[in-house]
């Protein structure tokens, strides 16, 4: 059994017009090993954020469930911390207080000094030393998300859930924070599940990329192995021979295949249920 397993999960939303419920995604099964960085890419509205929210316990699945470390994970918990797209920092708290709130919740038996030291350690880790007493309003988008990352890493969750974490950050800053995230992840080797629609970001950060078809009734169609060795950096990763192969494959999928309905995508998969594995180390698997 994998460390984190999303098991035959289906989600229906009630329809706006009052008709029959709309199927967001259907029979999604994802297995993530401990220490793996797995990213799901799909078009807006394919349900990838809903999927992440269900793993976080913030929404509930219509069918299926989440198994973490051999136990069912129902409802939100400190073992699955989310880094939110819009940061979700409390604007009435300082940077320090935002992170301390999380640390105090995660380690209720720690004393004041230990908590403060822990918070300071993670503030330093994301390079925000000196900004402890600032409020989120006074920070740029990039700095806000650094606080979000520090808060998430500080409680040392079993799984880190990144919900389009850099979507609201300008392109130049985004690259810098992505590399900071790589360093933090290298240090902790957390299990990470990320959703994004940024292909380069996914390739830079992930071990595997799951490609999701468009909704309604979306499913995971392909499982792309990122065959670029770590450690990775933005400048070197693009020089790897597989980079543009993977990138073109994903973009081709997003432009062409994502539009296809269930049956056509399923025909590409080996058993019609589990996603097709795309591994550029094994060239024979590649049809194009």
């Amino acid at each position: 059994m994998a460390f984190l397993q999303i098991d035959h999960m289906t989600k229906f939303f009630p329809s706006h017009s009052g008709g029959s419920p709309v199927c967001i995604f259907k029979d999604v099964t994802i297995k993530i090993e401990k220490g793996e960085f797995v990213t799901t890419i799909g078009h807006s509205g394919c349900g990838k954020s809903t999927l992440l929210n269900i793993i976080a316990g913030l929404e509930s699945a219509t069918e299926g469930g989440v198994i973490l470390n051999g136990r069912e994970a129902a409802g939100p918990g400190l073992d699955r911390m989310v880094v939110f797209q819009n940061f979700a920092l409390m604007p009435w708290m300082t940077v320090f207080d935002n992170i301390r709130l999380a640390v105090r919740a995660a380690y209720p038996d720690w004393d004041r000094e230990k908590i403060a030291a822990h918070v300071h350690k993670y503030i330093a880790l994301v390079g925000l030393k000196g900004a402890e007493t600032k409020r989120p309003t006074a920070l740029s988008g990039g700095m806000k998300q650094r606080v979000g990352l520090a808060r998430a890493f500080a409680i040392e969750p079993k799984v880190l859930l990144l919900d389009e974490p850099f979507a609201q950050i300008d392109a130049l800053t985004r690259g810098v924070i992505q590399e900071e995230l790589i360093q933090m992840w290298n240090a902790t080797r957390n299990t990470v599940f990320m959703v994004t629609h940024d292909v380069d970001e996914a390739i830079l950060l992930s071990d595997r990329i799951l490609l999701m078809t468009n909704g309604p009734g979306a499913r995971i169609a392909e499982n792309v192995i990122v065959t670029i060795p770590r450690p990775r950096a933005r400048v070197t990763v693009i020089e790897h021979p597989h980079y543009y192969k993977i990138r073109n494959h994903i973009i081709h999928f997003l432009v062409e295949h994502a539009k296809h309905d269930d049956v056509e995508v399923a025909s590409g998969a080996s058993d019609g249920k589990s996603p097709r594995v795309v591994d550029f180390e094994k060239e024979s698997l590649i049809l194009r």
Partner: peptide
């Protein structure tokens, strides 16, 4: 109140009372 704040409070498993005076009232 923006629901992300409540989501954070839920993930952090804040007690009802803490949720009230750390998140809901200041928010």
């Amino acid at each position: 109140l923006r629901k992300e704040y409540l989501h954070v409070a839920a993930i952090l498993q804040l007690s009802w009372f803490k949720r009230l005076y750390k998140v809901i009232l200041p928010g």
